[in-house]
Design a protein around this nucleic acid. Sequence first.
RNA 1: GGCGGCGUGGCCGAGCGGUUAGGCAGGGGCCUGCAAAGCCCCGUACUCCGGUUCGAAUCCGGACGCCGCCUCCA
Length: 463
Amino acid sequence: MLRLYDTIHGEVRDLVTRDPGRLSMYVCGPTVYDLPHLGHGRFTLVWDVARRWFTFRGLDVHFVSNITDIDDNIINRALREGTTESGVAQTYEDEWWAAMSLIGVARPDDVPHATQYVPEMVTLIESFLADDVAYVISDGVYFDTSRVSDYGLLAGQALDSLRAGARIEASEEKRSPLDFALWKFAKLGEPRWEAAFGAGRPGWHTECVVMSLGLLGNGFDLHCGGLDLKFPHHENERAQAVAAHRPFAQHWGHNGWVMVGDEKMSKSLGNFTSLTDLLARTDARAYRLLVIRSHYRSPIEVSPATIADAERALARLDSLARRFDLPALAGEMLVRQRDFDFTQQSEVLVHHVSELLDEDLNTPLAVAELFDAVSRANTLADQGKMTEARDLAVAVTVLFAALGLSVFSAVHASDDDDQLLVHARDQARSEGNWAEADRLRDELVTRGWIVEDSVEGTRIRRA
RNA sequence: GGCGGCGUGGCCGAGCGGUUAGGCAGGGGCCUGCAAAGCCCCGUACUCCGGUUCGAAUCCGGACGCCGCCUCCA
């Protein structure tokens, strides 16, 4: 049984699915008004890993993640740059998918865009107004949080204590500081959708509840996002579902922050690194390895040092693939356990790792187990037990692939001149002409290769 | 003010009462023509103070320090 920490209950619980064998999963996606940063990178990696693991274990996962393509930040950016909102959204959505592709995050099964769901949102807001769960003030339509008796469930706080701590908001018209905008009336020149209660645009919290329920239906299984969405975003989604008398997500997952030094990386602190920048100068797999080396609910430290550490660890995995000449797995492809035949020894490894990952996605322990298996595979190979060694190495790469980490021999295309040098070196070595062999190695190194000898002859890979 | 989390060896990072986490870096050795890759050995950590226990990094109490949420944020 797969188990996962649930935010509402505050404990690891069985991940019970609405339909046997099928998992419906919604992850709050980005608002596309800027380049993705490392925090986006982490949450997409964490839930991509979850999706992949659940899939590996045999679940038929329906994975939905939205794009918020209308929002104040988008409007502001369009104003500042003298372009259109849709232009801004398109630009940064393109950047988003480019980064996702580089980082190996598989495309969701459905990618709803907020602007495509406005009529459904209007209908929902109308029903709230009819039920007096929502009210209109000068700048928009607001949700009356006092109408949801268990408001604060996700935050683990009662309405009263939340209200006591709430800071003063700009609008004095709101019945409570906690009430949130369902709809913002359009000011002059702003994008607008017509509605009986006044032309405008939807609020963020309304978008996600409409899209998740719209695509996954009542009582879908799992709703995920970064820890900072727990409150108020997810709470407000939930409140709307409650007010609409629709069963909502049965299980909630939240991932931890990306830290810079001792501070959370965030837009408001301005201490963020764009994912796009990182990927331009680093093997994207290193970031995935860095992410899965710690638990998804823990904060992670991202710095040049921790990235470099992960890159070197990755090199160890790649050298295993190189040693056994293993094919690359993962990428867009989601691997499934049932598609592989494991030998008895490998089966033991798969079993151990599965136990760790099935229990709240304990990727750090799983990774430790896998690195341990790397050593064992190399030891077996050193002892000449190549068949056993290779079986274990294959299992390691399959399991990493199940986490979306593609392990491969990073041999990039070498041109004919390089190959001539390699052959010449093999020739020199077979003749015991060490001086010439060393000279040829130096030349290959100058050309940007790392040279390794093996029983099969000289092998080169990119430095 | 309310709620939650954290403090582990040079660094990252697990651990949920007793056993080697793992990675990276460092030292020694093996292998190798020399390297590289790989293998073996080594470090003996848990903020502090009490308590429970045969035994605590792990449970309880307290202190100190740090972080986050309650506002847009992944």
